[in-house]
Design a protein around this nucleic acid. Sequence first.
DNA 1: TATTGTTATACTCTATAACTATA
DNA 2: TATAGTTATAGAGTATAACAATA
Lengths: 158, 158
Amino acid sequence: MSNSEMSLKLEEIPVSEILPLLFKVSHFLQQEFEYELSLYDLPKQLTGSRIRVLLEISEAGSLRMNELASRLGIKARTVTQFVDVLEAENYIKRLPDPIDRRATIIELSEEVKPIIKKIDKASKSILDKFMNLLTEKEQSELKKILLKLYFLGSQDKK
Amino acid sequence: MSNSEMSLKLEEIPVSEILPLLFKVSHFLQQEFEYELSLYDLPKQLTGSRIRVLLEISEAGSLRMNELASRLGIKARTVTQFVDVLEAENYIKRLPDPIDRRATIIELSEEVKPIIKKIDKASKSILDKFMNLLTEKEQSELKKILLKLYFLGSQDKK
DNA sequence: TATTGTTATACTCTATAACTATA
DNA sequence: TATAGTTATAGAGTATAACAATA
């Protein structure tokens, strides 16, 4: 029995396979993402996860560490680790929160901004590569579905 | 600016956000998956990833370690590690391949089969939980899209 | 009392390189 | 020469528990 025969006849996948399928697709796309990023000469310690942390900070502009944790779906301890690494490389800054002295605010450094631009370029080319496989309609459908599922995910955490 | 205002106005997400969104959704769903599994009294060492390995073997019936590696999108070395752990717990068996003495074939043990049943139950309940958020049409659309993307992923590896 | 972030520690996932046995 | 899997080793991601500072 060949590989394709065995695992995936288009119309025969039951809905119950969606979850593992989503995990696999996500895994493969993350590998693509890291591979594609490796083609742009980014600093070697910038792994996929660290880049996702940077992008989250970039999107927010500035935010508290605990907010960063919740957006990334990871624990405070794990954020501390990412922040330690990224700060040591001067990609981000820790700033005191003026209205709560327990808290720490994170921002991108000026130095990292050109790197973010490169990452954006790389992301776009990866996206082109695989979004070409989908029709416009499928793309917007996918977007809609993912957003619905995302809201579930974030609500469940509270 | 509140959390929901900031990150996700439904119609404003550009297609370029699909990739990070997919990663996040997948991450949150994996956390749900592991949480839900923790409610069924499964052996504690059965992490999400190890369960995915078991399910892959279960689906195949029996397969070579290198085929397992390619289906999971991981390297031979990593498979060895999973197999070591799962075999030590008597969840799977290593068998010699009769037609190639370099190769090793993996099968589920009889003992693990009731555990697989439990895992299936847990999977279904997770699936119900979040598939309820989607219409029938969205579910089949999602399935179709993921399969398309999956084929890209697996083809790229060769 | 509760929350923010850190220190100390540990487990899991993943990989590369060098190697053995076999093809 | 090339492939299948292992040994040795290491880096990265994640977490829990105990704690200090602050709310």
